[in-house]
Simulated assay, not measured.
Amino acid sequence: MALKTMSKIVLALVTVGGLAACGGPNVVPDAYTNPNNPNNIETDPNNTIWSIFRNNTADTTIAVNKYLWTASLEVLSFLPVQSVDPFTGVIVTGYGTPPGGGRAYRATVLVDDPALDARSLNVALQTRGGRAVSKATARAVEDAILSRARELRIADNRF
């Protein structure tokens, strides 16, 4: 019983000590001594432990290639879409059978670059048994997506 009580006290002291260490003032180095602030204590009210939870990157945008994105959705339209995140460029589908095919597949597509380039496209295919498909099949799907993306780009430039 005494061991349990002692461990609770030690845990409480460690927790209080850790929290106390978080709240101390930030001392400015001597090279940056401010004559208006003789104690060299940083007084920026925005610099707190809670500032890490603020969204400081409001101007940051993640761009994916719109042609690759649209072509991926069109080529894999026979698969039911489970989740789509255009900000990270991820498309996750459920199992579906291609037209004229007998085996069910599911796909995960990552478009991770704004360039219309094969390196911007990553496609992972699985069969219903959880096995990855052959490299030739995956390559054929990637080629179909890339071809459709090029067609979309060419059609877009005609305007």
Rank of each mutant, 00 (worst) to 15 (best):
M1I: 14
A2C: 04
L3V: 06
S7L: 12
K8R: 12
K8M: 06
I9P: 10
V10T: 09
V10M: 04
V10R: 04
L11V: 05
T15Y: 05
V16Q: 00
G17F: 03
L19E: 00
L19I: 13
L19K: 11
C22T: 13
G23D: 05
G23Q: 08
V27R: 02
V28H: 04
V28N: 04
V28D: 07
A31V: 12
Y32R: 09
T33L: 13
N34S: 10
P35N: 11
N36E: 04
P38H: 05
N39Y: 01
N39S: 02
E42W: 07
D44T: 11
D44E: 14
N46M: 11
N46A: 15
N47I: 07
T48Y: 10
S51T: 15
F53T: 14
R54F: 14
N56F: 06
T57H: 12
D59S: 14
T61V: 12
I62T: 11
A63E: 15
A63T: 15
A63S: 14
N65Q: 08
K66I: 06
L68V: 00
T70D: 14
T70Y: 08
S72P: 01
S72C: 03
L73H: 06
E74G: 05
S77Y: 01
S77W: 01
F78H: 07
F78R: 04
F78Y: 14
F78Q: 08
F78W: 13
F78D: 12
P80C: 04
P80F: 01
V81F: 07
S83Q: 10
D85M: 09
P86K: 08
P86H: 04
F87C: 11
F87M: 14
F87I: 10
F87V: 13
T88G: 08
G89V: 04
G89Q: 05
G89L: 02
G94L: 02
G94Y: 03
G94W: 03
Y95K: 15
T97M: 06
G101W: 01
G101S: 10
G102K: 10
R103I: 15
Y105E: 09
T108W: 01
V109F: 07
V109N: 07
L110F: 08
V111F: 05
D113W: 02
D113S: 14
P114S: 04
A115M: 10
A115V: 03
L116S: 12
S120K: 06
L121I: 02
N122I: 07
N122G: 01
A124S: 13
L125F: 02
Q126W: 09
R128I: 08
G129A: 15
A132Q: 14
S134T: 13
T137Q: 01
A138F: 01
A138I: 00
A140Q: 09
V141I: 13
V141Q: 02
E142R: 00
D143H: 00
A144V: 10
I145W: 00
I145A: 01
S147L: 10
R148A: 12
R148K: 15
R148P: 10
R150Y: 00
R150F: 00
L152K: 15
D156V: 13
R158M: 13
R158A: 15
R158Q: 15
